[in-house]
Design a binder for these strands. Structure first.
Length: 514
RNA sequence: GGCUCGGUAGCUCAGCUGGUUAGAGCGUGGGAUUCAUAACCCCAAGGUCGGGAGUUCAAGUCUCCCCCGAGCCA
């Protein structure tokens, strides 16, 4: 089966920030999980490159829009490479194949009678690429978000007849599970209940956009064009740009992950566009929360922006991924606190998980010839830790497809805690001092190492690098069998050599603020 | 202004349809231990559950009002 998921197509106004990194990491974890589960995954990300705002940003720098996009997009590509993001597609809305797709899509909407022309007058914010509701007689109005002057517009635009879709959109968003998390549903329902208004999908005098076929001088409104990038991405499989191929190419997406700020576009406008064009709507739209830093909104004016490049450079991908996925309920807002970040990473990854592996491997090597204790496979079955391990596997399997990363992390962690507690209870180091305990110590150490192996495997989608180091440390050969086959109690090779223990996770010691 | 979501230990949060002494993790203090990355394990202190009123035998949990924060729409 194909499982497709998307991040937003990030606007190339600036290089990647922590927010887009967060979204992308979460999607990466989900994509990796689905792949391990045996799905054929299409993990889509990309960039949204059109619009007046880009045109102006480029002009300010004295370069062509294309040049500006190339520069910023290169930053995105480089960032995702450094973070080890496993996306299958990376789409640019300026790539040649996108244009015919947008035009074909538009023509379907037009043929369906969902496009009309109309006059649009009002105050416009270029930052938002949106008309604002300031009264016409306002003098020098400002955008509350961007703190920049609004511009007066009076132009003939093409409109998408969103009003035609009132009932269908209501039915869609009432479907449980379409909008996730459920807590965000009501807001959208209220918005829709207020009556859907047609929205303009073209601009005049914006050169940096895709031309609207049959309407001289109009280019597509950036949002219209950007949303369609998801489809272009899926059709970038070597085949033609043909909307009829989408079903085979992975559309509809299983989940589209976005920040809560753009939920409306994805849960209302976008499905209506798709309905008009006779295409299926995404199965789920997940609006996650925002990150603050030490309790404050991050922003240039406050000068407290946390740079993902710095974070990666100083702390590494594993630490950051773990903290974000483990500490923040995906969907809710979260606060990045440096103290908590280091505490959690050190406690969970270095102390609890890393040290468990380290201490157990040391004992096994010391008393069992530098190897996993050689017990026969039947002896592993029914060990006290087996039930805990199996329950953990189950919990991770349930949490991950629901994007409940926090629950998955907690489940894994609790297995490591159980195993640590078990070791202290059994105290194999003292029992080894009396003769005759070798067999039971062997069995216990095997069981704890087996827990480590399962912890390592389960961590694979969440913190892939650390996962690899754990499995390496257990002397696991490169995987020949599938994840599912390996996620079975007792698959650790008894008697196989254990390498010299090395800490798999260094403690974070940040001497200066990030 | 209307609406939505939050306000529970120092911090991040759990607390389902109301029911014994309000929970977890982190942080803090103490103990135990040496297999281990000053790690692991155990124990403890810490909360008038934003405020007020009401419903009830019984409310963090329901109702109303107010205060604070975030957001959506005007």
């Amino acid at each position: 089966m194909t499982y497709s998921l998307t991040t937003p197509l990030y606007y190339v106004n600036d290089r990647p920030h922590l927010g887009s990194t967060y979204t992308t990491i979460a999607c990466d974890a989900l994509a990796r999980f689905q792949r391990l589960e045996g799905e054929t995954v299409l993990f889509v990300t990309g960039v949204d490159e059109h619009g007046l705002k880009i045109q102006r940003t480029a002009a300010d720098q004295g370069i062509a829009p294309r040049e500006h996009c190339d520069r910023i997009t290169a930053r995105y590509l480089e960032a995702w490479r450094q973070w080890g993001i496993s996306n299958d597609r990376f789409v640019r809305t300026t790539e040649p194949r996108h244009r015919p797709l947008v035009q074909a899509f538009f023509q379907r909407c037009e043929a369906a009678g969902d496009i009309r022309s109309g006059r649009q007058t009002g105050w416009y914010c270029v930052g938002c690429e949106e008309f604002k509701d300031e009264p016409a007689e306002a003098k020098e109005p400002c955008c509350p978000l961007h703190q920049k002057p609004l511009e007066w517009r009076d132009e003939e635009n093409l409109f998408f007849c969103l009003s035609h879709f009132q009932e269908r959109i209501e039915a869609l968003i009432n479907q449980p599970g379409f909008i996730a998390p459920a807590s965000r549903r009501k807001e959208i329902q209220n918005f829709v209940a207020g009556g859907l208004r047609d929205f303009s999908i073209s601009r005049v005098n914006v050169a940096w956009g895709l031309p609207v076929p049959g309407h001289e001088g109009h280019t597509f409104y950036v949002w219209f064009d950007a949303l369609l990038g998801y489809l272009t991405a899926l059709l970038n499989d070597g085949g033609d740009v043909d909307l009829d191929r989408l079903g085979a190419a992975g559309w509809p997406a299983d989940v589209q992950v976005i920040g809560k700020d753009i939920l409306r576009f994805h849960a209302v406008y976008w499905p209506a566009m798709l309905m008009s064009a006779g295409l299926p709507v995404p199965k789920r739209v997940f609006g996650h929360g925002f990150l603050t830093r030490e309790g404050q909104k991050m922003g240039k004016s406050l000068g407290n922006v946390l740079d993902p490049e710095v974070l990666l450079e100083r702390c590494g991908a594993d630490a950051v991924r773990w903290y974000l996925l483990r500490d923040i309920q995906f969907g809710d807002d979260g606060d990045f606190q440096q103290q908590r970040f280091t505490d959690l990473v050190n406690n969970d990854l270095a102390n609890t998980i890393g040290n468990l592996l380290n201490r157990t491997a040391s004992m096994a090597r010391k008393w069992f010839n530098d190897a996993v204790p050689p017990i026969d496979s039947s002896a592993a079955a029914g060990h006290a830790l087996q039930a805990d391990a199996e329950q953990t596997i189950e919990r991770v399997r349930q949490a991950m497809p629901e994007l409940r990363f926090q629950q998955a992390c907690e489940a894994i962690l609790s297995l490591a805690i159980q195993a640590n507690g078990y070791l202290n209870e059994q105290a194999p180091w003292s029992r080894m001092k009396q003769p005759g305990n070798e067999a039971s110590v062997a069995s216990d150490l095997y069981a704890v190492l087996e827990c480590c192996r399962l912890v390592g495997l389960l961590l694979q989608p969440l913190v892939p690098d650390l996962s690899q180091r754990i499995l390496d440390q257990l002397g696991e050969a490169p995987a020949v069998s599938t994840w599912k086959e390996r996620l079975i109690w007792g698959k650790l090779n008894a008697g196989s050599p254990l390498p010299q223990p090395q800490p798999v996770m260094a403690r974070l010691e940040l001497d200066a603020p990030l």
